[in-house]
């Protein structure tokens, strides 16, 4: 897995990002180089406040960077005008957040259908596909539940279904297990690995939860604004 010959799904070079100006200026990302490949699940780890979320936002194209280049699926983000970037993001990326960010007044299946509705897919078709996706995360029987009637783990599974319903090439997860207890966190990672990971998709998971490290294929360490190491993860029970 070390020598990737195919082009990277995400190719970041020399990313610099600071917040604030003058005395209060903090350089959060200070020359990030990172490739993420199709078919892999990359864990991004590092201390809290180290800039992991900032890097994810930059890759997602929802945060402008000061320096550097980011290509997603061969498309340089900086060359896309804002409107196109939004559309591009909707078509190619799915997101899973620490706070599940479900719409509270929509049922589980409706929440999952939202990305399709944004893509102007008809409601019947969108709900049908959403139902299939909910089945795949094991919540087929909870389709008509409102988020408030689901447990945290179940809500996060709805969020994963929502992130995947569009068949995105890039699945971006920011501390998806941080709001959950141990067993629920494990379950979420299992689902991300079984359902989310696919040969035509990159999955990037930010975490600092060592109990779930073994779910990844590679692990990148972010320290002092740089990626200081990237290494493959040896999975327990696999040779």
């Amino acid at each position: 897995m070390n020598d990737h010959t195919e082009p990277a799904a995400v190719r970041a070079r020399g990313i610099v990002k600071s917040f604030g100006t003058g005395d209060t200026k903090v350089t959060v990302l200070n020359g990030i180089d990172l490739d993420i490949y199709l078919g892999e699940m990359l864990l991004l780890v590092g201390e809290s406040g180290g800039g992991k979320t900032t890097l994810l936002s930059a890759i997602a194209g929802i945060l402008d960077i000061d320096e550097g280049d980011i290509d997603v699926l061969g498309v340089p983000l900086s060359e896309l005008p804002a409107g196109k970037r939004t559309t591009f993001r909707g078509q190619t990326m799915g997101f899973v957040y620490q706070q599940f960010n479900l719409l509270p007044t929509l049922t589980a299946v409706e929440n999952v259908a939202v990305p399709l509705l944004i893509q102007k897919i008809g409601r019947t078709e969108a709900l049908r596909r959403a139902r299939v996706m909910l089945d795949r995360v094991g919540l087929g029987d909870r389709a008509e539940f409102l988020p408030k009637n689901l447990s945290g783990g179940q809500q996060q599974r709805v969020a994963i279904a929502r992130a995947l319903v569009n068949e995105p090439r890039l699945l971006i997860c920011d501390e998806p297990t941080a709001a959950l207890d141990g067993p629920n966190g494990q379950k979420i990672m299992e689902i991300l690995r079984e359902v989310g990971r696919s040969p035509s998709r990159s999955v990037i998971v930010v975490t600092h939860d060592s109990r779930i490290f073994h779910f990844g294929d590679r692990m990148a360490h972010l320290t002092d604004g740089r990626i200081v190491s990237i290494e493959p993860i040896t999975r327990e029970g696999t040779a």
């Binding site: 939004t86 993001r89 909707g90 997101f95 719409l103 939202v114």
Partner: peptide
């Protein structure tokens, strides 16, 4: 979240 999912 809607914006992140591609809603303009």
């Amino acid at each position: 979240a809607l914006k992140a999912m591609g809603a303009s």
